[in-house]
């Protein structure tokens, strides 16, 4: 074993002279205006707009701007967010009139020359600022029984499934229950009685699972007055989904499954 006498490598093998390096690698910053629908249930009878000017960077997302406003300008701004990386589905909101996750919407993809409009998602009872009561959403989610239903003894090994069988419902396993789809649906906005795309997507995930035996019960639930037949195929849900689930296609597949079962 020999002792290492060579000097440690420098952090960068290329030392750029100052006149070449400049600030080429720095992140561009820009000023942008946020117009946010604020609602305080203790003072307001309905939401009102407030504008905030912030200096943001090209790598920032809408969520970063909301953080900056909350932490540096107005601490009373309320919104939900948990993971902040597009997995938990907490921060769905209406940004420039489209339902998206604030943590997945980059400022550089929006038109920062105009105010960026941020509102709570529509169709669910507003509680404060961006926070809505998600109970109606989760109630219809619970009604479609989003869990594995089987009969007989539990097998001693895992329930096997072929790649093709898994492929049938692969798309709908991606749902993170952010409610961006359901709250973008015009049918849901009217009276909130429609099951909504998210509940149907999660029913689809089990109906088309070869291991599940509760498909008939779920199809029966969705064959209701407020079930899949209220879908008008406006594709708002498919456009809103931050996970890229083909929601309208999944609803159409459930419609087909109900028809095949009926005839």
């Amino acid at each position: 074993m020999s002792t290492d006498t060579t000097p440690a490598e420098p952090a960068s093998k290329i030392d750029l002279p100052d006149h070449v390096a400049g600030d080429a690698g720095s992140i561009p910053s820009f000023d942008c205006t946020f117009r946010i629908a604020r609602f305080d249930p203790e003072q307001d009878s309905e939401p009102h707009w407030e504008e905030y000017n912030v200096t943001m960077y090209g790598t920032d997302r809408v969520l970063d701007a909301l953080h900056k406003i909350k932490w540096e300008i107005d601490g009373s701004l309320s919104f939900r967010r948990s993971c902040a990386h597009g997995v938990c589905g907490s921060d769905a909101m209406r940004i420039n009139g489209r339902n998206r996750l604030a943590c997945k919407t980059l400022l550089k993809d929006l038109d920062t020359s105009k105010p960026i409009i941020v509102e709570a998602i529509k169709g669910l009872p507003l509680e404060k600022d961006m926070i809505v009561d998600m109970e109606p959403f989760f109630q219809s989610y619970r009604e479609i029984m989003p869990f594995l239903i089987t009969s007989g003894h539990e097998p001693t090994r895992e329930r096997l499934q072929s790649a093709e069988q898994r492929q049938a419902f692969d798309d709908t396993t991606k749902c993170i229950l952010c409610a961006a789809c359901t709250s973008s649906c015009p049918v849901f906005w009217t009276d909130g009685q429609y099951f909504g795309p998210a509940a149907i997507v999660n029913a689809h995930r089990f109906i088309f699972d070869s291991r599940d035996e509760g498909g008939d019960m779920r199809l029966e639930v969705l064959n209701d007055k407020e079930g899949v037949w209220r879908c008008r195929t406006t594709f708002n849900c498919t456009e809103a989904c931050p996970r890229g689930i083909e929601v309208t296609k999944a609803i159409a597949e459930v419609k087909q499954a109900i028809l095949q079962r009926a005839f």
Binding site: D133, Q193, D224
Partner: peptide, 22 residues
């Protein structure tokens, strides 16, 4: 404020009317 009265969904009708209408 009064506690939320909760959200009431219509009872299931178990009718196939909407399917036939569609």
């Amino acid at each position: 404020p009064a506690p939320r009265t909760g959200y009431s969904r219509h009872k299931s009708t178990r009718s196939k009317f909407e399917m036939f209408a569609w």
